[in-house]
Computed example of a mutant assay.
Amino acid sequence: MKNLSPSYLKHQFLIAMPHMADPNFAHTLTYIVEHNANGAMGLVVNRPQELNLADILEQLRPDTEPPARCIHVPIHIGGPVQTDRGFVLHTNDKTFQATVQLDGLALSTSQDVLFAIADGVGPAQSLITLGYAGWEAGQLEAELADNAWLNCPFDPEIIFGMACEQRLEAAAASLGINLSLLTSQAGHA
């Protein structure tokens, strides 16, 4: 019997195609946290913003001077939804108050993970975002059918082992694709 369930992209990367017009997602690499019949949720992992962890800690713990190392912890734009809310994608060696396990990774949304990272007792590797990307039921499938995205297998090395500006190209390269060679006319012969 054939499996008729749609193929969901949980725990994969989405690569924005070069012709992606939506400014929220142009030139982005997104990690898909959840994808099911109700929709999808992901975190853009290659768009740092001007903030760093020290800036956030000054708001969360105004009476405590943030450790100097926090200045070097970038905060990424995770997507256009709930941009005031923090999401920390991290290795699953530690868990916190609000941690969800994801195939060898974890996602934490409670402030304690930020304090742990600041105090040097956080997870081995982490990526902090403000906001997330969300898709309604069927929306991501429609965008994929419209060639807005490519999907590829998740590789933790791309998030945790590479400079931010290398992540998108590295994910595309894992599929044997050079994004700079694709034009906005790709797929419209």
Rank of each mutant, 00 (worst) to 15 (best):
A16F: 02
M17N: 03
M17E: 01
H19C: 00
M20Q: 05
M20Y: 05
M20F: 04
M20D: 01
A21D: 11
D22K: 06
D22L: 05
P23Q: 13
N24V: 07
N24Y: 08
A26Y: 06
H27E: 15
T28E: 02
L29S: 01
L29Y: 07
L29D: 03
L29V: 03
T30L: 06
T30H: 01
T30Q: 01
T30K: 05
Y31N: 08
V33P: 00
V33N: 04
V33A: 11
V33T: 07
E34P: 01
E34F: 07
N36G: 12
N36H: 13
A37F: 09
A37M: 13
N38H: 15
N38Q: 15
G39H: 07
A40I: 04
A40T: 12
M41A: 09
L43S: 00
L43N: 01
V45N: 01
N46P: 00
R47Q: 11
P48F: 09
P48N: 08
Q49L: 11
Q49T: 15
E50F: 12
E50G: 10
E50L: 10
L51N: 09
N52A: 03
N52E: 07
N52H: 15
N52G: 05
N52T: 09
L53S: 04
A54Q: 03
A54H: 06
D55I: 06
I56V: 10
E58A: 13
Q59A: 14
Q59N: 14
L60T: 07
L60K: 10
P62D: 05
D63A: 15
D63N: 15
D63M: 14
T64V: 15
E65W: 10
P67M: 14
A68P: 00
R69H: 15
R69P: 00
C70T: 10
C70G: 10
C70I: 08
C70F: 05
I71C: 07
H72R: 14
V73T: 13
I75S: 03
I75C: 02
H76Q: 14
I77D: 11
I77Y: 14
G79C: 10
G79L: 08
P80H: 12
P80L: 08
Q82K: 12
Q82F: 04
T83H: 10
D84T: 13
R85V: 10
R85M: 13
G86M: 00
